[in-house]
């Protein structure tokens, strides 16, 4: 996973529309909260937190950003506040327990393979472990009845991307229109743009 991010819309920023008809009052309030009130750690202990942060860094690497989009704080906050998703897959423990056990298992997997915790590994070794978790190619003595792939894809990856792609920086990088109310769009056809959308990207390879 050594490829670099190609940034198709480098000059586009959905936040530039903050004071335009694309943003209403309630959306500004919600986004201000997300940008300015990043919560502190309350649910995970220090060890779990270190693993979670290290996992987030590899699921969504942001080496080009001085201030990466925060993800771990919001996962912690949701668990602390008891916010559910509506689904408890019977093969997993309940949400909070599944998170603790999954992160602990990732960390123990790292110790078994490399003799140190996941957060202390370099990027390549971390990625190797995450790929093994996704493939279910893990130590059964560590994971026991926790299904590695289900945990990895349906809790860990889904929650991380859910928090990354609601951030304006992430929406800008993919050229999404961002918040749009009361103003929506007029030009709906292929290769048609309203002036408040991201300028067309350079042709991709």
């Amino acid at each position: 996973m050594s490829e670099t991010f190609l940034a198709p819309y480098p000059d586009y920023d959905v936040l530039a529309k903050w004071d335009t008809p694309s943003w209403n009052e309630q959306t500004r309030e919600v986004m201000a909260h997300r940008l300015r009130e990043v919560p502190g750690r309350r649910f995970f202990d220090e060890e779990e937190w270190a693993v979670l942060v290290a996992v987030c860094e590899r699921v969504v690497p942001q080496p080009e950003r001085a201030e990466p989009v925060p993800i771990a704080p919001w996962i912690d906050a949701a668990l602390f506040e008891g916010r559910g998703t509506g689904t408890h897959f019977a093969t997993l423990p309940s949400g909070p327990e599944a998170w603790r056990r999954g992160l602990e298992s990732i960390d123990r997997e790292a110790r078994a393979r490399h003799g140190c915790g996941f957060a202390a590994l370099d990027a390549t070794r971390r990625d190797d472990i995450l790929e093994a978790v996704d493939a279910g190619d893990v130590d059964a003595a560590i994971w026991r009845d926790l299904p590695a792939r289900t945990f990895f894809r349906h809790l860990l990856l889904e929650q991380i991307v859910a928090l990354y792609y609601v951030h304006p920086d992430a929406q800008s990088e993919i050229g999404f229109g961002g918040p749009a109310s009361p103003r929506g769009y007029v030009r709906l056809g292929p290769d048609r743009l309203d002036e408040w959308e991201a300028p067309a990207a350079a042709k991709r390879p």
Partner: peptide
């Protein structure tokens, strides 16, 4: 996951 994920997502508009 990883940079591959960000690049796949960058194709959103296509």
């Amino acid at each position: 996951f990883g940079t591959a994920l960000r690049n796949r997502m960058a194709e959103y508009n296509h």
